[in-house]
Design a protein around this nucleic acid. Structure first.
Lengths: 211, 211
DNA sequence: CCACAACCTGACCAATCGGTCAAGAAAATT
DNA sequence: AATTTTCTTGACCGATTGGTCAGGTTGTGG
């Protein structure tokens, strides 16, 4: 027992390895898609033998499913700021900020999600029909209340939500295109702030929610 | 010669088969991604033996490249309305309409493009760096002129373009999600009109371009 | 210290992949 | 009608895939 705090207990290792595999899988799935990703490559990225992956996750699909589920949780969590606000300018503004931060620091997850939906959600269709549908209904109700209270224009809430999702996720999903059009450079801190400001400016003004 | 007009001349058949293969390939690549698509499945969808595909397109990558190039042409063509207009309300409005129509009637192409860019554009990176970069520069110049003439607010043209792309393409790339949230039904004609109206309303008002 | 359970992994497998090829069918050219 | 060129296709190939498994290693509870 050479080290005072050894991270080698059975449960710790299990957690550690699962996290390692999931991180590697997210990256590889994002870069190659489900069909293009190979268990061998995920194993290499994780630094583990391929057979070990199948010990923790029985099939490629099970591993993929876990990756998508984790992303889904992050997405839902980001929406808390929406409800905490008492008006559209604050609520939608904070939601845009939160989703832009996710696009910046978790782009692989966003890509996996996009890929899954583009392929008709073969793995998480049930989530779309239940959790996401319920979440959307709740947010629609909030927006409709804001409209009734005269705090923003009468906009179809669904299409507003789609625009919020599309615009913020675009900075992750199409980040490579954006970087290429930025002379091959990733966006700087200042450019990310410009992006957030521009998005908020257009949308908040566009729905008549600026003070 | 039982039929008066036989479509069986050599050149006609070649064109016909190439079109058949490209259409099948676009559909399959959109549904399964490049890595998930198989030449066998494309052949089945096209109704041709697999070996015949390799007669017209030497490799899977060559076929994929042709699919992406065709989509790229449609994209560029849709931007003509942008220049034909003499103001932001007309120009950007028409551009939104055109791109929404493409999302509606050519969703598979949009998905293939999105997938290609998400995977860091391994096949069409040169197009991003040349044609798309030049096109973007030209449109930025137009928008900057509109701003100088006081016909719209001072918005960063790049982020405005990204928002236009993101929002319009979302209706193709995430069409399955939108349909699911629409009680599993595809958007009706009226709903598509609502979508176009909402997008134009928010963005045109958001950039201060409404008359 | 022992025995059991959990963990690890190199070697292996059937299935499927993209791609090839030779030989025949069909159209164009002479 | 003969010949050449283009087209078509079933059979086949090496490589790679997701997944399996037997046997060894390691931590753990008694």
């Amino acid at each position: 027992m050479p080290y005072a705090a050894r991270p080698n207990s059975k449960k710790e290792r299990r957690q550690e390895n699962e996290k390692l595999i999931l991180a590697a899988a997210e990256k590889v799935f994002a870069e190659a898609g489900f069909g293009g990703a190979t268990m061998q490559l995920i194993a290499d990225v994780a630094g583990l033998p391929k057979a070990n992956l199948h010990y923790y996750f029985p099939t490629k699909e099970a591993l993929y499913r876990q990756v998508v589920q984790n992303i889904f949780q992050i997405w839902l969590q980001a929406a808390d700021v929406f409800d905490a606000a008492d008006g559209p300018e604050e609520g939608i503004g904070a939601y845009i900020d939160a989703k832009m931060e996710i696009s910046r620091h978790h782009p692989a997850g966003s890509k996996v999600w996009a890929s899954e939906v583009m392929h008709r959600a073969p793995v998480i269709q049930d989530y779309l029909e239940t959790t996401l549908a319920e979440w959307t209904q709740g947010r629609i109700a909030v927006i409709e209340r804001w409209i009734e209270e005269g705090r923003m224009d009468a906009i179809d809430p669904r299409h507003l939500l789609y625009m919020l999702w599309a615009t913020t996720q675009h900075y992750a999903d199409f980040g490579h295109q954006i970087d290429t059009l930025n002379n091959g450079m990733p966006l700087s801190d200042a450019q990310w702030e410009e992006a957030k400001t521009s998005v908020k400016q257009i949308i908040l003004r566009g729905i008549g929610a600026t003070g």
